[in-house]
Design a protein around this nucleic acid. Structure first.
Lengths: 334, 334
DNA sequence: GCCAATAATGTAATCGATTTCAGCAATCGC
DNA sequence: GCGATTGCTGAAATCGATTACATTATTGGC
């Protein structure tokens, strides 16, 4: 392996000068610059980045924690973050937690071990206290999730309000037994949506029925299962607010396979407005999140935080959402 | 920041001993182990990984180059790789090239700068020669793509044969003017599929028509555009073999919006058998790739290559595929 | 023409770990 | 009871860069 010393020798200069050329320091004569460049070319030299990181105490790498990449919501979020990151010459370390506490813990340690300059959390399995612990070691931003208990800024949308709107829409369309499916029990996203769901019900004087709340529902396949669970109930729901377009799509497909009419027998609302929402038939009513802006904003905030070196505080940036009303929830009245 | 020296001081031992405890070396007495562990706990010590990497000359990190994460094919591939990687205590550096030559170059440099122990390429923008150049610096595996010109093993399926089968199927269903959409022009995937497409046509004595070959078609939206291009032709195709389920879905949706009957007016075949293939109506005929096995296999081979330190050679592992016949291509006859 | 300021370069310390080597103590075999 | 082996520990070199400081050469002002 060729090192900076080899280059210095070949160029007949000191390592310091070579380093200055690498880092574009001023005060290096053109003549020596040329010599160094030639030597670097001839030796096919590339600086060892572990050494650079160790010495300079920064990594130019940012960790993004996502539960899974196969959920398009997170894929699009990552894409947006990646855009901003590469513009700023930062690398992205993509970490899939798979909704696993321990995996998440391990990835959070990246901040402690100085393997990354900062970290963005898009979902959270561990409790907020332990998160706050990690936040001491380096800048961190919450994106999608949020908690007042953590001294960390958050970029997200108002899931409570969004869920409230979605459920009110179902009620206005005539639904009276509304189910709610979600993924994680501890996530702030879930808690917000659940609160919105419940307040919409009580706001319209509809009693809450625990049978209609289903957790651990993440993807298309889970959606199918959820549908079958609901049809197994004595009193079936006539509307479902799901936490994801994938789930909603799974429900619709299984409903069709079972000759249940959507939306007349069962109205469905998804979340995210992913491409699949307009592919499935009937097209899915859903809540559009400004994913791109969310990812960009989170990354921008992190970059600023890294630059400033000040300790972060709790702060929330709420982004707008939009209820996209499509056929899966329409004309339930009459 | 607390270092190994701080721990050594507090424990009243040398740095060497602390290091041994960290790395689970034998020949450290239980007594000292305890002392070290206590000191580490008390100081909240975590080893600095840049220092570890520099000294040990390995990173336990693997770079995966994908064009985009929003294409589910790559998302699922990554998921499979991630599974094997985490089992082996390896980190994944996910790199999105966005079909950009320069970005790809930069990511390939990770191998030279020793930022990663190995690298998997799932698509390739640059020419094979320059790739071979990078391959000198560390182990590399091609996954999905392949080329005899690069001394690197490849895991993929036989795209030529798959495309041949797909097109023969269209022909058997009665299609006579078959279009072909693909993404990149230089990719080996495309070249293989194109060859299969052409040989299927000539095998059945169907003339090739350049109008029916369309490139730079990647996603749902591109699929819609492609459809509109095809309908603008004087002689429209009666069957389309696309390079991706996303594209095929876009075509189907736009066709429906234009009252074109699928498959009677236009038969469609996708590629990958992504979830969306069974969501769209009519369900999409497509070629199922064993994505999970492909990702796992590629990662396993890379891990082995990293262990062995031998120079790699050209080698191909072909995985089986399956033509999933669904409604988008059925019953064209009569 | 002299002194101060500035530019260009080198020396050596440093980042935080791992690992070789050597030293010492304890154990073993006979 | 003595030499050989084994187990445990520390001193110091090392990985490959960056950078504070020192040194020398050059320029500028008056």
């Amino acid at each position: 392996m060729t090192t900076i010393a080899d280059v210095a020798n070949l160029a007949g200069l000191s390592r310091a000068t070579v380093s200055r050329v690498i880092n574009n320091h001023p005060n290096v004569s053109e003549e020596k610059k040329r010599l160094v460049r030639e030597a670097m070319d001839r030796l096919n030299y590339v600086p060892n980045s572990s050494a650079q990181k160790l010495r300079s105490q920064k990594t130019d790498t940012i960790a993004i924690l996502v539960p899974v990449l196969t959920n398009p919501f997170f894929a699009y979020l990552l894409e947006a973050m990646d855009e901003v990151a590469t513009e700023n010459n930062l690398q992205l370390l993509v970490c899939q937690t798979r909704y696993d506490k321990e995996k998440e813990h391990n990835y959070l340690k990246l901040l402690m071990t100085k393997q990354v300059d900062g970290l963005i959390l898009t979902s959270c399995e561990n409790d907020w206290n332990s998160l706050a612990e990690y936040a001491k070691y380096g800048p961190m931003i919450l994106c999608n999730e949020s908690s007042e208990q953590v001294p960390v800024p958050a970029v997200r949308l108002d899931h409570e309000k969004a869920a409230f709107d979605a459920c009110c829409h179902l009620i206005e369309q005539g639904c009276r037994r509304i189910a709610f499916t979600y993924g994680d029990t501890v996530s702030s996203v879930t808690l917000g949506r659940e609160a919105g769901y419940k307040s919409a019900l009580s706001h319209h004087g509809i009693p809450l029925c625990e049978d209609l709340l289903v957790s651990q529902v993440y993807n298309l396949e889970d959606g199918r299962k959820a549908f079958n669970y609901f049809t197994s109930l004595k009193e079936r729901p006539d509307g479902i607010f799901t936490g994801s377009d994938q789930v909603a799509t799974g429900i619709i497909m299984e409903a069709k396979a079972n000759n249940i009419n959507i939306p007349d027998d069962l109205a469905i609302i998804g979340f995210d407005d992913q491409p699949i929402a307009t592919v499935v038939e009937p097209a899915l009513t859903t809540i559009r999140q400004p994913i791109k802006e969310m990812g960009k904003k989170a990354m921008e905030m992190l970059i600023e935080a890294i630059g400033q070196k000040e300790t972060l505080t709790y702060q929330e940036i709420l982004l707008p959402y939009e209820l996209m009303i499509r056929d899966s929830s329409k004309f339930k009245i009459n």
